[in-house]
């Protein structure tokens, strides 16, 4: 039950993506922002394993909104 490929791939993406965000190699904001996309898709795969259709819709919409807010924050931080 727990060994569907969605669940395993999603958990690998969650763990590896979180570690890569925490210890980003070129230590700047853009690298962390791009690496933050990896756990987002991993969480989408884990939600897919549990058949949460409404959670998939809501998470896909809110992920783009949070990315926009992060980009505006980075630009305001570097422009000042």
């Amino acid at each position: 039950m727990i060994s569907t490929p969605e669940f395993i791939a999603g958990m690998i993406l969650l763990v590896a993506g979180s570690v890569s965000v925490a210890y980003a190699r070129p230590k700047n904001y853009v690298t962390r922002l791009i690496n933050l996309e990896i756990p987002a898709w991993g969480l989408l795969l884990v939600m897919l394993h549990f058949n949460e259709s409404l959670a998939l819709f809501t998470f896909a919409a809110i992920s783009v909104l949070s990315t926009y807010i992060f980009v505006r924050t980075i630009q305001k931080r570097e422009g000042a």
């Binding site: 853009v30 996309e37 896909a60 919409a61 783009v64 990315t67 980009v71 630009q75 570097e78």
Partner: peptide, 21 residues
């Protein structure tokens, strides 16, 4: 369909930060 049409917008927002850097 919804995720496929929404996902490139995220990439375009990240590209705004890349070009500024």
């Amino acid at each position: 369909i919804a995720v496929a049409l929404v996902a490139p917008i995220s990439t375009i927002f990240i590209l705004m930060a890349c070009r500024r850097e």
